Computed example of a mutant assay.
Amino acid sequence: MKKHVGRLVLLIGVAAVAETAAAQSSVTLFGALDIALSYQTHVNPSGKSQMGLQQGNEGFLTGSRFGLKGNENLGGGWKAGFMLENGFLANNGKLDQQGQLFGRQAFVKLGHERYGEIALGRQYTTGNTMLYYVDPLGVGAAPTNSWQVYLVGQRYDNAFSYTGVLGPWQLIAEYAAGGIAGDHSARSSASFGLRYKSDKLTAVGSMQQTHDSQSRRARIVLGGWRSPSSALPYLPTTSIAIVMPGSTLPPVAPTSLRSPAWHRARPARRSASTRYSTSAAATNFSPWALTTA
C-alpha cells in the first residue's frame, strides 16, 4: 500500500512540474495589415503626380506582416525563443523583402536575465534598431521617413547578435557573415550600438562597417535622441548619419546583403528629393495578436 501511495505522490509531482513548465512557455501568432489610398505630387523630375494603394510598395505607417514568436522559460534565469515574421504587400498579395518567406525576421535566441541574449538568423541591423528607439514613427514605411536607415540597411541575413542591458544602458553588437568562401570580409557587416534611456531622455548611437562582394567598405556612424516635450521642451527628436572617412563604398547598404530598405528606397529617394513633393493619404492600420500558453 505504501508503494502505491509513493508512486501516486510521485506522479502528481511530475504532473505539477510539467504543468508549471507548460505555463511558462508561449507561442504567439501576430500580424498587422496596413493599406492606404495615397496621392503624391511631383513623383519625378517632370512634376507628375501619382495615386495608389501603397507608398513605395509598402503600407503607409508600417509594412503588412504576420508571424510566429515563441518563448520558453528554461529555469535559473535562462530563456529561449524564436521569431518567424513574414512581410507581404497588401495591395497585390505578393511577398515583400525580395520574395523571402520570412523576410522581416527569422532567428532563434538564447538568453539570461543577467548576462544578456544572443540571437542567430535574419535580424534587424543595429542602426535600424537604434533609430527605432528615437523615431516618432518607429522607423515607419513612408519613403521620406528615417532616411538614415537607407545607409546601413534594415535587415541582414546570417547575423549573430548580442544584446545586454545594465541599468539605463543597452548594448547591441552584431556581425553578419558574408558567406563567401575564402573571403570572410566580402558581404559582411559588423556593428555596435548603445542606448541610454531615462524618464527624460532616450539617446542612441551606432557604428557600422559594411563590405560588398568586392570587399569595399562603408563606415557609417548614427546618433539621435528623443525626449518627452514636458521633460525637455528644447530638445526635440533628432537623428543624424555620417559617412566616415576611409569609406570606399557608396554610403548605402550593398544589395548583395539583401537589404530590403535599400531595394525599396532607391526610386523613392529620387522622388522625395524634389522640393515640391507633397502627399496625402487615408490609411487603415490593424495590428493583432493571438497567444497560446
Rank of each mutant, 00 (worst) to 15 (best):
Arg65His: 07
Gly67Ile: 10
Gly70Asp: 00
Glu72Lys: 13
Asn73Val: 13
Gly77Glu: 02
Gly77Pro: 03
Lys79Ser: 15
Ala80Met: 09
Met83Trp: 03
Asn86Ala: 13
Gly87Leu: 08
Phe88Arg: 03
Asn91Ser: 15
Asn91Asp: 15
Asn92Met: 08
Asn92Glu: 10
Lys94Met: 11
Gln100Glu: 11
Leu101Lys: 06
Arg104Gln: 04
Ala106Glu: 04
Ala106Cys: 04
Phe107Arg: 00
Phe107Cys: 00
Arg114Asp: 13
Tyr115His: 10
Tyr115Glu: 02
Ala119Asp: 06
Leu120Cys: 01
Gly121His: 01
Arg122Ile: 04
Gln123Pro: 09
Thr125Phe: 05
Gly127Thr: 07
Thr129His: 04
Thr129Cys: 00
Met130Lys: 06
Leu131Tyr: 03
Tyr132Glu: 12
Val134Gln: 03
Asp135Arg: 09
Leu137Thr: 14
Gly140Glu: 07
Gly140Ile: 08
Pro143Cys: 09
Pro143Ala: 05
Thr144Ile: 12
Ser146Asp: 14
Gln148Val: 06
Val152Gln: 02
Gln154Arg: 15
Tyr156Ser: 12
Asp157Ile: 03
Ser161Pro: 04
Tyr162His: 03
Thr163Val: 14
Val165Tyr: 00
Val165His: 06
Gly167Asp: 10
Trp169Gln: 09
Leu171Trp: 14
Ala173Asn: 02
Ala173Cys: 00
Ala173Leu: 13
Tyr175Gly: 01
Ala177Glu: 05
Gly178Ser: 09
Gly178Pro: 06
